[in-house]
Design a protein around this nucleic acid. Structure first.
Lengths: 211, 211
DNA sequence: ACCTTGATGATACGGTCGTACCACGAAGAG
DNA sequence: CTCTTCGTGGTACGACCGTATCATCAAGGT
């Protein structure tokens, strides 16, 4: 057999090129030739590793969400060992705001895919629809745990608050993306609601509330 | 001179066709020939009344926002003569949710335009960027007025709450659009926050608070 | 009556896009 | 050594898209 190549690595490299060029010119404007040029390979190779453009786009979406999930996880981990629920939730929400180039690209492309999926049933059947559900469940669990330990308002509805926080983070992110709002003002809005849901109480590290 | 035609009426008709076909197949997929066929005119006429596709798209955006503004106004007016601030705000927010075909199309296309504007500077310079600001200011004023009359929580920050409500309505609308959430659950989330901001107090029609 | 001018139709042109086709190199298997 | 097979390049094809061109019709003004 001739020289064997790691197909998965190649696909990841090409998908990365797709994300880069799509982040600059928009997902709608990217062609196979653009991706090939960005990846530094020939058009034929893009066809070789992804038979069709549709499959390239699907793989690109998967790659995008995987990378972003890892990024959010790293941000949460960077919040420190065993952080309080508030710090965890804040890290989670703020990580999704388009504050740097990578998160900006993610936000733009994820939104583009979501809009595309409304009129493209093949895309709507892709896995990224349950990604928001996972975030919602995780955030709900965090809030419920905070309520049980007395760190969050017990009168609040955890799931509704989780949905609300994620919904706000999404639109605020878009507002930042289109230049209507600054990242700082978006963060301020989110903190406003975190202050409302989380009771000031003791320091987050302490578990016992002083009554 | 030959038969004179109302250009503005023609443009509105063609723009309507653009909105219809874009609502079905997606804004990215619409071509001039599709618009011509939907409007029942020849391709040449679309070129005649809009010299270029870019101008057609710009006009379509304007037409879309105008129609939607009128729709929201009608919804608010339908809330009854001199309704309470809560009823007005609720009508405002619920009118933007994609609950029927027209609002669904609006939400899809407005989002498409917004995403396009991130990578298309000519589109970013279009007027629709200040539309959200107007809604934000109007909603802020409504909340402040409610606070002054004792109908809303005075400890809340009116502008932040206005931003939050609009942000939630936007993302919740998108969630409904992609089929992730039902309109009812979206409405429930919005009502949850309205219940929080607006004090139960007296009936909205009465102006004097009992305390 | 004629001529100007706005409105409309049919069609052609250049470009781009996704995909298909064909050919060649290179590396292990026999 | 040769042959099979994976990887790769170059290029052509057919379709579509936005735009431009040419021609025709119709309705007033003079």
């Amino acid at each position: 057999m001739p020289k064997r190549v790691d197909h998965e690595e190649r696909r990841a490299h090409i998908a990365e090129a797709l994300i880069q060029v799509a982040g600059r010119r928009g997902l709608h404007a990217v062609g196979m030739r653009d991706v090939a040029a960005e990846a530094g390979v020939s058009l034929r190779l893009v066809q070789y590793y992804f038979e069709t453009k549709e499959k390239l786009l699907f793989y690109g979406l998967r790659h995008l969400t995987d990378r972003f999930t890892a990024r959010v996880g790293a941000r949460v981990a960077a919040a420190g060992p065993d952080p309080g629920p508030r710090a965890t939730v804040e890290a989670l929400l703020l990580a999704s705001l388009p504050t740097d180039e990578e998160s900006r690209t993610f936000h733009l492309l994820y939104s583009s895919y979501a809009i595309l999926s409304v009129t493209d049933e093949a895309l709507a059947a892709q896995p990224f629809v349950d990604q928001p559900d996972a975030a919602e469940n995780a955030l709900t669990a965090l809030l419920e745990r905070a309520q049980e330990t007395g760190l969050a308002d017990r009168d609040a509805d955890a799931r509704t608050e989780a949905i609300s926080l994620l919904a706000m983070a999404a639109t605020l992110g878009t507002s930042v993306l289109v230049g209507q709002r600054t990242p700082q003002s978006a963060i301020a809005v989110l903190r406003y609601h975190l202050d409302r849901v989380f009771t000031p109480a003791a320091t987050p590290e302490r578990s016992a509330a002083p009554a």
